[in-house]
Nucleic acid binder design. Structure first.
Lengths: 189, 189
DNA sequence: GTCTATATTTTGATAGAC
DNA sequence: GTCTATCAAAATATAGAC
């Protein structure tokens, strides 16, 4: 394991603070205080507060894009691909709980990278929708509005970061399996 | 229809801005500008920025509490109650799209009312969980982890405000029905 | 790599005229 | 009910010493 650079440490701590109060409410003094240094010292490792947010969000957004590319090229059917998407979200969310909060809630505070982020997200949703439509066409899943299906599944997956920290008791693999069953088969007996 | 007071107008416009950028990133000057007046003039109608957030969030949180009380006292079974919960969320979310954003994302910026809000939310989740556990006990729904089921359904419902504005084409009643089917019966054929 | 000192801008809010 | 003028605090960021 490579040693964490000072910049990576700042970004990691910042993400934790951003999750608690949101990007705008966290000051450079808050962040510095949490690092045990003065605010001015932060600027030896990062260019601006904006840059920290950029790094947190873009890294994650690109990881999701990469994950979706893998899933698309897999030989699985629709249900199999959905299962992989669930696993992708559980994996990335549990690896970076704090960053997921920024991805969900603070993307509008991106500046130059905002359009790029929106493009990645929009492409991700298009790919997701295409998988559902393929499943409807092949008769694998019900013929419901794919937009509503995607909304339901995706918002649950996008909110995983809120619940995963509370579920330390629950094994992640078990969690993923339970989620898979609930999202795909419903809760009806 | 009673005429909207100036204070109500301020709160309504503020909620819209809070949804776009979050409570902390919206300044009193932003809000005043959107109202067509100067920032100082706002203080003739409200005491503080904090008060605006309090009004937005607490009004909604109490509406959910009241709705849940109604549902609890209904004679429906578990699945029927879940359907009513879905309808409650679709109704309140569509009536106050902007306020729902603050409820979800800016509750941590409450001050004196923060504990009260957290109590309401915690009670709401307890009531929700009890309905699911009752359904498991009676054999109405599958014997899965009620926490994971609640998480899945509730996060979808709590995110409705993001999607409803995009779905103006989609009738709200239809939306509610589709959502009900997807959340309860799943998407599997 | 961290510090102190400081520049500059922006913030929520108040006082008092009209 | 709105305005102008203004305050005090807090924000991001830079310069230069150590």
């Amino acid at each position: 394991m490579k040693k964490e650079t000072r910049q990576e440490e700042i970004v990691r701590i910042a993400a934790r603070l951003f999750k608690e109060k949101g990007y705008s409410a966290v000051t450079m003094r808050d962040l510095a205080s949490e690092m045990g240094i003065k605010a001015a010292s932060l600027y030896n490792h990062i260019n601006s507060k904006q840059d920290i947010l950029d790094m947190i969000i873009i890294t994650l957004a690109e990881a999701f894009t990469e994950g979706m590319k893998q899933i698309q090229s897999s030989p699985e059917d629709c249900i199999g691909k959905l299962k992989q998407i669930i696993e992708l979200h559980v994996k990335l969310s549990s690896q970076n709980i704090y960053g997921m909060a920024s991805l969900n809630n603070d993307w509008m505070h991106l500046k130059e990278k905002r359009d790029y982020y929106k493009k990645l997200r929009s492409n991700y949703e298009d790919d997701f929708r295409a998988i559902l439509e393929e499943g409807i066409a092949s008769g694998e899943i019900i013929n419901q509005n794919p937009e509503v299906m995607m909304f339901s599944i995706l918002t649950t997956l996008r909110s995983l970061y809120i619940w995963i920290p509370k579920k330390e008791d629950l094994n992640l693999m078990e969690f993923s399996t339970a989620l898979n069953q609930i999202l795909i088969k419903g809760i009806n007996k």
